[in-house]
Structures are given as structure tokens and as C-alpha cells.
């Protein structure tokens, strides 16, 4: 039974992942990602971490993906503006790189003794699944990182707010002269001719 569930949702995850990276429209990619995240959540539950599964849906699928969709809508990213994956050097180098990477993974994990083989994992204990256990660890040994992550989120909020401000508002980046002019930069400007009279 477990194997069945695993096979089903693994296949789903893989399929939707491939759609994520290949589809022309960003909206479809995002929605595909949601499907992938759902499958991952199920796999988390299967692995004895139901809390994380729930968290996955809440945070990832519920917040982050929504954020993505907002931005896509905001920027009105058109289907036409995107293109397929570029053919050419970039693609082949990427495929090669990934192949090498995976090969190294295989070498590292399978050959160097970290293999786990086909042995069955230990059974899921009540302890493992319990939220209490997780919370104890989180607020116990990892209290400091927890607080720091909170700080990090604060910083992220501030940063996002500042970065995304409309140009022209008080204290905006434009006013501070970070962008030279209000015009879109487009192509790099041609070098201005020097008007020295050094004959």
C-alpha cells in the first residue's frame, strides 16, 4: 500500500516538475508547481512528518506560490514574451552539468558507504510523528536559529518593501539617484563623444 502511494505521488511530482520547467506560460508553470508541492506534502506525511506536510501546503503552496501569481499578474507577464527553453550551448551545458552532478551524487552516496540499499526503514514511531517532539527540539536546541530566522523574515519584509517601491515617491531609489534618469535603460547608451580640443 505504502509503495503504491509512493509510486503514484512520486510520478506526479516528477511529471509536474517537468511541466514546470518546460511550459511556455508562467501561469501554467506556477500551477504545475503547486501540484508538485502537493505531491511533496503527501510524501512528507508518508515519511512520518505530517506537520511539515501541512506546513508545506500552508506556506509554500499557500503563500509563496500565491505571491508568485500576484507578481505575474502585476507585471502582466505575457505568454508571448517568454520563449521555450533556449536551444544551444546553454542547454547542453546545463544537461551535461546536471548529469555530472547526479553522477557524483551516485558515487558519493552509493559507493562510499552511505548506501542505504533496499533495507526497510525503521518503523514510524509515535515520537517521530508527534508535534511535541518537534517543538521540543525546535525551541530547545535550535532556539537561537529560530529567533534569527524571525529576524531574517523581518529583514526580508523591509527589503522587499524598499526594493519594490514605485519610483518618484518620497525617499525612493530614483530620488536618491541610483537610477541615472527616469528613462528606461534599454540598450546601453552609446559613449558620449568627447569634446576635448587637444590638438
Amino acid at each position: 500500500m505504502e509503495t503504491l502511494i509512493f509510486a503514484l505521488f512520486a510520478a506526479l511530482a516528477l511529471g509536474s516538475a517537468i511541466v514546470v520547467i518546460t511550459h511556455k506560460s508562467p501561469i501554467y508553470s506556477t500551477l504545475s508547481l503547486v501540484l508538485t508541492l502537493f505531491s511533496m506534502a503527501v510524501l512528507f506525511v508518508l515519511l512520518g512528518a505530517p506537520f511539515l506536510g501541512a506546513l508545506q501546503i500552508l506556506v509554500y503552496a499557500g503563500a509563496i506560490v500565491v505571491l508568485f501569481l500576484f507578481v505575474i499578474m502585476l507585471l502582466n507577464v505575457q505568454k508571448e514574451e517568454t520563449a521555450h527553453i533556449d536551444r544551444g550551448a546553454q542547454l547542453w551545458t546545463a544537461l551535461l552539468g546536471v548529469a555530472v552532478f547526479l553522477g557524483m551524487f551516485w558515487l558519493a552516496f552509493w559507493r562510499t558507504g552511505l548506501r542505504l540499499g533496499d533495507s526497510a526503514p525503521p518503523a514510524i514511531t509515535q515520537e517521530l510523528v508527534s508535534l511535541k517532539g518537534l517543538a521540543a527540539e525546535l525551541f530547545g536546541a535550535y532556539l537561537l536559529p529560530f529567533e534569527m530566522v524571525g529576524l531574517l523574515l523581518l529583514v526580508a519584509v523591509i527589503g522587499a518593501t524598499v526594493a519594490a517601491r514605485r519610483p518618484g515617491e518620497a525617499g525612493s531609489l530614483q530620488e536618491e539617484g541610483i537610477y541615472a534618469s527616469g528613462e528606461p535603460l534599454g540598450e546601453p547608451a552609446p559613449p558620449t563623444p568627447r569634446k576635448e580640443a587637444n590638438r
Binding site: A49, F51, V59, V71, G133, E137, V157, G159, A163, A164
Partner: peptide
């Protein structure tokens, strides 16, 4: 539980990163 704790943190960081990155894109 350590692995799960790390996942917890990764999700938080991913959220922060997505937010800031999208703001930059804007």
C-alpha cells in the same frame, strides 16, 4: 527530529528569499 527542524528553517528562508527576489524583479 533534527532533519525536520532544518526543513522548517529552509521553508522560512525560501519564503523570505522569494519575497525579496520578486520585489527586485518588480
Amino acid at each position: 527530529h533534527t532533519g525536520q527542524v532544518i526543513v522548517f528553517f529552509v521553508m522560512a528562508v525560501a519564503a523570505a528569499e522569494a519575497a525579496v527576489g520578486l520585489a527586485l524583479f518588480i
